[in-house]
Design a protein around this nucleic acid. Structure first.
Lengths: 427, 427
DNA sequence: ACAGTTTCCCGTAAATGC
DNA sequence: TGCATTTACGGGAAACTG
């Protein structure tokens, strides 16, 4: 009869932050005879919800009844748009946190629309409501709130089961995988491949147990931390969605980022590749990080693999990822800085893969010499770095604050001295 | 009789932002006989101010009368602290912007405190008020608002001349210089030297006219842009105060930053210094930037000076300034990267001056190779860089997107090819 | 003490007003 | 139309609160 629409965060509807304006549109699907009548609609929050299951209560600010109007864009239906609605904490209503371990982002609410239609003497009460929605107070709760909305809509058709998360059902892997891929598709513009989904499934369910019918618990998906980590599976995945959206979209859409590759698989892929072959993967240890792993060959002809510490959105805001790949150098003692990245897996020359995303260096600031940050890594002498035989440092270190730590913390002073020692011309 | 205290921004009192909580304390200086009485105080905003001069009107939220209490910390005076006061725009009161060119941050207001004391049958009305204060709506207005407060208190003793900025007096340079130095002292912990103040005075008044009695116009100080720039003198200076406070404080307090040096004086200072001598100065072309200028000597023995494009707080948040000085390299084509910074002016080895501020590189992220950003500049072949004779590029540039621009935009591809060409071992 | 949650408020961006 | 000013709100951090 009426059809509520999505509200607020563009890619994460049905999550509302307190104190932030939101809008919602309502259409009357019923066609009415053309007579002179008015149809005023008002909204109500958590109307007729039994107090027992309620954790928190909110009220709607700026909530004036509005009249439905004919909407051109949807073939002349009656419609109304509420704007500038705002949710506010109703104080003094902390109905004891009795429901045990339900979190704020599992606490479901309903926005209700009510109207009274007076037509030819008849008075008809109309009422409809949104799907259950989640109320958050800080943007950091948005991913968890959106996870609840997705889980609910994936696993039930009930219009308003507000106690859904008292006993949330499992999802089976095939439907969850579809949902994850769809998330990547809508948010980043590119969905996930079978291989990528397989890695995610193994991360969620363990290496051996992955089947279409495998059951994924809600808590495994979003509540418990990944073993050894400080974040849950979904929070991790969402951090990557955001990283792609904000910093990596063009490169991601091109398919240059394998991204979801376990370390074991990474080794298997790179094992037989030429030195300088690299692939890009998302960090599993930090939220929203991306790293590259490349193949090296030491002086004995033996291969090894190295990864750079993951880059995060802070880094990438300063230096776009494609430029990092272009410019990245490793300083091995006694050598000249060298780029270890030559071929994007399997064998695409890196400039062919990333060339169109390179930015030029700016030269705006004349008479200044342009400033640039070169993404580099410095490799210690004695760490387990099989391709370089240990050497004796060339110089003493005038400002090494704590010489006993040297093997763990490379002092750039070393770099400088070494560079001097190999610098011959013009000095 | 009563004594109002400062409110809100720690280093910029008497500026209040709408919608942000502020507090204020009031003490009764009069000692009263110990009898049983109560003294309730309430606040009012712009009470008894003639509407004509008012540009904007505000009201105080959460403004409940409060009772004065004995305050231990100030030898038993009666005192009261108002907390959680908030200023809100009074809508519909836009008393026509008739006063011509007065800006929001010149629009002065008063916070008034009122109390009625009933003592032995007498009823005494007490009233006092703050010094004029400025109301802002966004934090970007804070520096301009604080400039008004300073100018007012520097140049008048009137307690409440709200139309002060209809015709603001000039300051003479000697008193203004004292004020500027005091600002650096309170905000950054180090005041300005005579030389630094002289540079500022010349910037404000022109090179030749600087004397103690020179008059500085208010508009020159804070309203008009510096010729050729998009910001006023004070906004520029305040951006440097903030940069020091947030990113440079230890180095600044040590006196390593000359900072305020005109380009002419910079040349004069460096002229006779050894190659590798450098000094640090704040950017005059960009807000909140710092750069270094160093001496070079070309193959003919001729000296030249170069400056790097200024670093801003965004850069310095990512890479602390001392580390930039330690690591900074210039890549001249065909040469190995080299640090052009050796001696802090006049002749202090840079590690002696900055060593204690160096940070160690982190190695937390094992098994990853630590990531680092090396602050570098790349020098083109053909630009006006007298110390290097032009050379023919060693290689073609496979991915130079627009070869005709090459002389203006250095393509890092060049760097890479060159590095390969001089790389001999292990490859 | 502490973790989950909310509040506070800067700083950027967009909207608004004049 | 352009500039001055305000509003909006993400995001980091502090404050709150059971």
């Amino acid at each position: 009869e009426k059809q509520p629409c999505t509200l607020n965060y563009p890619h994460k509807p049905l999550v509302i932050k307190t104190g932030i304006y939101f809008s919602t549109r309502l259409r009357l699907l019923l066609k009415l005879p053309e007579v002179d009548y008015q149809l005023k609609v008002k909204t109500a929050f958590d109307k007729n919800v039994s107090g027992g299951t309620l954790h928190r209560q909110f009220e709607i600010l700026n909530n004036n009844p509005k009249q439905m109007d004919i909407d051109e864009s949807s073939n002349g239906c009656l419609a109304v748009e509420f704007r500038h609605l705002q949710l506010k904490d109703k104080k003094g209503s902390s109905t004891s946190k009795n429901e045990g371990s339900l979190t704020v982002t599992e606490d479901l609410h309903i926005l209700t629309f009510q109207a009274r239609l007076c037509l030819q003497g008849l008075s008809i009460d109309l009422e409809t409501s949104t799907l259950p929605l989640v109320v958050i107070s800080n943007i950091i709760q948005l991913p968890a709130g959106w996870a609840s909305v997705m889980w609910y809509n994936l696993l039930t058709d009930e219009p308003k089961n507000l106690s859904f998360f008292n006993n949330p059902p499992c999802a089976n892997w095939s439907q969850l995988a579809k949902m994850l891929s769809w998330q990547f598709s809508t948010i980043t513009g590119r969905s996930l491949t079978t291989e990528q989904l397989e890695m995610l499934g193994e991360k969620l369910l363990g290496d051996h147990a992955l089947q279409s019918e495998s059951q994924v618990y809600w808590s495994r998906f979003c509540k418990e931390n990944i073993p050894g980590k400080t974040f849950s599976f979904w929070l991790w995945l969402d951090s990557i969605l955001e990283l792609i959206k904000k910093c990596l979209q063009p490169v991601w859409i091109d398919g240059c980022i394998l991204g979801f590759v376990s370390k074991a698989r990474e080794r298997a892929l790179l094992k037989d590749k030429a030195p300088g072959t690299f692939l890009l993967r998302f960090s599993e240890s930090h939220l929203g990080g991306i790293t590259f792993t490349w193949v090296e060959q030491d002086y004995n002809g033996e291969k090894s693999f190295s990864s750079v510490e993951p880059y995060t959105k802070n880094h990438l805001n300063m230096l776009p990822f494609a430029d990092i790949i272009r410019d990245y150098k490793v300083l091995t003692d006694g050598n000249v800085p060298e780029s270890p990245l030559k071929f994007l897996y399997p064998d695409i020359p890196k400039d062919k893969a990333f060339g169109k995303h390179y930015n030029r260096l700016h030269t705006k600031a004349f008479p200044y010499i342009p400033l640039h940050f070169l993404p580099i890594s410095m490799r210690q002498l004695s760490a387990a770095s099989p391709q370089t035989p240990p050497k004796i440092p060339l110089f003493d270190l005038p400002f090494s604050p704590n010489p006993s730590d040297l093997e763990e913390t490379f002092d750039p002073q070393i770099l400088e001295e070494i560079l001097y020692s190999i610098s011959v011309p013009n000095s």
